[in-house]
Design a protein around this nucleic acid. Structure first.
Lengths: 218, 218
DNA sequence: AACCAACCGGAGCACCTGTTCCGCTTCTGC
DNA sequence: GCAGAAGCGGAACAGGTGCTCCGGTTGGTT
């Protein structure tokens, strides 16, 4: 049984330290992923390790607090894409802009990829995103530009793939993922379609992916 | 200064133990990747940890000894693909068959992806593979089937991408990488080509990728 | 000013890695 | 058989991680 913990305290030092922890964690998560050692976050925030655990009893609590902003950006990107006049343009710009965020924020990538990280907010974000993505796909398919055998469940696969390219080559060639994505998007046009393995992942299968951590890379 | 160490010993128990270590390591590398703890390998081989380090002073020595066979398979796949009558068929079958090997052998994936693992043999394998791959690409482009702006240096990006899908979804849907690859291959046909980010990775950049380990993932 | 609950810090514990070191065992040549 | 070199096993060390616990401090209230 976990006792409810107010996110804001009566004491000014506590509030200040909490803020410092969030700032430090945000910086470190962005550049090094959500797996940075807790001691590192505490050190960068200039507080003791005990203070970190006092404010965030679980790693996921910290992740949730830190990535809220990034989630909002992601959803904003999807909403903007839905507002595009051209459905194909909307579809591709969502993927591209989302990947720009991924490229800038390693922690976001970690959380989006695996189910293993994050808590309520991460899950809420996924729930809010799903219908937007489904609509982007549907719109582009009705338009005739996106191949009809593409499924919304294929979107995560695109992200996994490009995220891997970002992760491996990001430091050497930060924009090379655009090239790889370009090839993929060319294959998603109706005009390019050729029969592929016909069964996409089910949502249930997607739910199971990455349950047991290990983000792959760095 | 490392003293030269004969790979075969005069003593029967030493030879037996070395063999057991290689067998155990091969099984574990295939199912769990090259990062399995050394103790695990020793335990599975029924041998002390000291014995492991006696036979393989560094992790890379073990990796080299174990993955030699997998490298040969990979090169055989490339040679077979070069023998295909249809250049496009050869090109795609190389990628598909290589990925079948990757899907079966997590350790092979690790070594092919990163420069960080393996030693002489891994490097020799990469050197032997490169001209074969270049030829597969050239053949398919001369044939007119593969888009002319594709470069041999883009091949690793395809592997990174599909490997990630295998890694994340492999347990839930072992064949789903074929669907993702199908989309990509459709985008690699000349008929599907649309301008993409025009500059591929240089070989020098490829050399730098994954120098500092931690593939990301799992 | 004085009190005390809330908070802080970090030593410390438990666990996991890679790698070394060395007393004991076993194989092989004689 | 015997001797000694080669090999074996695992305790032990070093470094890194998550997380807890508690003596000491401090902020805010009275």
């Amino acid at each position: 049984m976990t006792v409810a913990r107010p996110t804001t305290s009566a004491r000014s030092d506590a509030r200040r330290n909490r803020g410092r922890l969030v700032v430090a964690a945000r910086e470190l998560f962005e550049s090094a992923g959500v797996d940075v050692p807790a001691r590192e976050v505490a050190r960068q925030a200039g507080v003791g390790i005990g203070t970190l655990y006092r404010h965030f009893p679980t790693r996921d609590d910290l992740v949730d607090a830190v990535l809220e902003g990034a989630f909002e950006e992601l959803i904003a990107v999807a909403e903007q894409a839905l507002a595009a006049e051209d459905p194909w343009e909307g579809f591709t710009s969502f993927i591209e802009e989302a990947l720009v965020l991924h490229a800038r924020n390693r922690g976001l990538k970690d959380v989006v990829e695996l189910q293993a990280h994050g808590l309520r907010r991460a899950r809420a974000m996924r729930r809010r995103l799903r219908p937007l993505v489904a609509e982007l796909v549907a719109r582009a398919q009705e338009d005739g530009s996106l191949r009809p055998d593409f499924a919304p469940q294929d979107i995560p696969l695109l992200f996994w793939a490009s995220d891997r390219v970002i992760e491996l080559a990001g430091e050497v060639a930060p924009e090379i993922w655009r090239r790889q994505l370009g090839f993929v998007l060319d294959g998603l046009r109706t005009s390019a379609a050729t029969p592929v393995a016909p069964v996409p992942l089910t949502y249930e299968q997607l739910r199971l992916v990455g349950r047991n951590k290990r983000g792959g890379t760095a």
